[in-house]
Amino acid sequence: MLQDAVLDSSQVSLAEPDTTFGFPEVRVGGLPACVTVALRKRISDNDIRKLVTDGMPIDAREAQRIGLVDFVGDVETELSRIIFKNCKPKVTNVMYRPDCEKAWEA
């Protein structure tokens, strides 16, 4: 499965082991200008140049090595772990304004 790597809005990038990343439009004469700007947040300029120049796809392990992907493996399990870790219920205290004003005066 060949995918364009648009990762500007994600904080964590997950990939299955058989995923490939690349710019197939380069092989037919296109230039992925907007995507390369977004990629600068994740990978080096040299790696972007290589991807844009040859148009050949890279596998998930290579994408992880250059910093494009954070995790390669069972995406569903990793996503469940991230959600469990970061989305725990938080305790909030709701106070009535007159009670707060009395506390501030004291």
Rank of each mutant, 00 (worst) to 15 (best):
F23D: 00
R97L: 15
M56G: 03
T20M: 10
R61Y: 09
R65Q: 09
N86W: 01
V72F: 09
F84R: 06
V37R: 13
V94C: 06
K88E: 15
I58Y: 00
Q11Y: 08
V75I: 08
D4P: 05
D8S: 14
E78K: 04
I83D: 14
V94E: 15
F71P: 00
D47N: 12
A15C: 04
P17M: 02
P24C: 02
D45V: 08
N46A: 10
I58W: 00
G29Y: 00
E62A: 05
V91Y: 14
K85E: 15
K90D: 04
D45R: 10
G55L: 05
R61Q: 06
E101D: 04
K102M: 11
T77F: 05
V26A: 09
G67I: 03
N93F: 14
L39T: 02
T36F: 02
R42A: 01
D47T: 06
D4Y: 09
C100I: 15
I48T: 01
R40T: 09
R97Y: 09
M56W: 07
V28F: 15
G55Q: 00
A33I: 14
V6F: 15
P89E: 14
A60P: 09
E62K: 12
L51T: 10
D18W: 07
R81V: 14
T20C: 09
C87I: 13
T92P: 06
E101N: 07
C87D: 11
C87M: 07
R42K: 07
Q11E: 10
V28H: 07
D54L: 04
K88R: 15
D4M: 08
I83P: 11
A5Y: 08
I66A: 09
R61H: 07
T36I: 15
K102R: 13
T53K: 09
V12P: 15
P98C: 01
T77I: 13
A63V: 02
V91S: 13
T36S: 11
D4V: 11
L14V: 04
L7Y: 11
L7K: 14
I48D: 01
R27I: 04
V12D: 14
R61N: 06
S10E: 03
P24T: 03
W104S: 12
D74L: 05
C87R: 13
E101I: 08
M95K: 14
D8P: 08
A60F: 13
S13H: 13
S44M: 03
V35H: 01
V26H: 07
S13F: 10
N46Q: 06
R49K: 06
F71Y: 10
K90Q: 12
S10P: 13
E78R: 03
N93W: 10
L51N: 05
K85D: 15
Q3T: 12
Y96L: 10
Q64D: 06
V75Y: 08
V35N: 06
G22F: 04
R81F: 12
S80P: 03
G55F: 00
V69K: 02
G73I: 03
D4F: 13
A33K: 06
D47V: 03
V37E: 12
D74E: 04
F71G: 01
I82P: 02
I82G: 00
M95F: 01
G30K: 04
S10T: 09
V12A: 15
A33E: 11
A106I: 12
L2F: 13
